[in-house]
């Protein structure tokens, strides 16, 4: 479980009134797909960095599985993985195997443990035959798969995806959602997805909506559908739901 209690964040070099995030409180549970929506500068990426422990909160409390992610990342280990939108910019190794090993080396694991984890993760993601391949020979979809695998190999409790579908073609997007469904509903992994695409919104089971550093919507999918027009206008209400409501109006 992720709990934010009155969390605020602002960058030190800016004036203290320019909040990136202002007194935000919410909690997220495993077992459903959690989505975060919002425009540029709404604070949604800040939330992702806070959960992953990349930055500390300036005020308020946050914990991930009962621990403070910032202290956790900087002292003993790893709670939540963060996957960014461009796969190209987050692959460190020159071969698939090396990239899978990078995070494990940071955790200070022994060779035997690393080898075991790399082999089983590669098998799970269908990367076994590619282990020795140079990263440059992979396709876009395979690169994204590698990014996910490289974080999953570290066995995090939560994974946060920052706009994961924007670099994929429509076919690869379908594959991505299959993986997410598997993670959330069969492997008990906590997943948070940040996206601007309206069609991604229809996949979210629990939705947080941010605007200018404030949480303006927090609820499950059906509550989002029932929300007032301002919310729909602001967060690009998906065409499929518009259609649904047109049909509903016709046959109440």
């Amino acid at each position: 479980m992720i709990v934010f209690d009155q969390v605020s964040f602002w960058y030190k070099d800016k004036s203290e009134t320019s909040f990136e995030l202002k007194e935000v409180s919410f909690s997220l549970n495993k077992g459903r797909i959690n989505g975060i929506v919002g425009g540029n500068g709404s604070g949604k990426s800040t939330v992702a960095k806070l959960i992953a422990g990349l930055i500390p909160a300036n005020a308020g409390n946050l914990d991930v599985e009962g621990q403070n992610p910032y202290q956790q990342l900087h002292q003993s280990g790893f709670l939540a993985g963060l996957i960014f939108q461009n796969p190209e910019n987050q692959i460190v190794g020159t071969t698939v195997e090396e990239d899978l090993a990078f995070g494990l080396e940071n955790l200070g694991l022994s060779h035997e443990v690393m080898h075991h984890r790399i082999v089983s993760t590669a098998e799970r993601f269908g990367l076994t035959s590619l282990l020795r391949q140079p990263v440059t020979s992979l396709s876009g979809g395979q690169k994204q798969l590698l990014c996910i695998a490289s974080v999953m190999v570290m066995e995090p409790a939560w994974v946060i995806f920052d706009e994961p579908t924007s670099h994929l073609d429509p076919w690869a997007r379908l594959d991505f959602w299959k993986i997410i469904d598997e993670f959330v509903h069969h492997h008990g992994l906590g997943v948070v997805i940040i996206s601007q695409l309206a069609e991604d919104l229809t996949r979210f089971e629990n939705i947080l909506g941010f605007k200018a550093g404030k949480l303006i919507f927090n609820g499950v999918r059906d509550e989002f559908k029932m929300a007032d027009n301002d919310v729909h206008e602001h967060f690009n209400f998906p065409e499929s739901w518009k259609f649904e409501s047109l049909m509903l109006a016709e046959h109440p």
Partner: peptide, 17 residues
């Protein structure tokens, strides 16, 4: 950022795969 999110710190004791 991606490296840091995967736990990389210059000062840390890293092992070798």
């Amino acid at each position: 950022q991606a490296m840091e999110a995967r736990g990389y710190r210059v000062s840390a004791q890293r092992t070798r795969y």
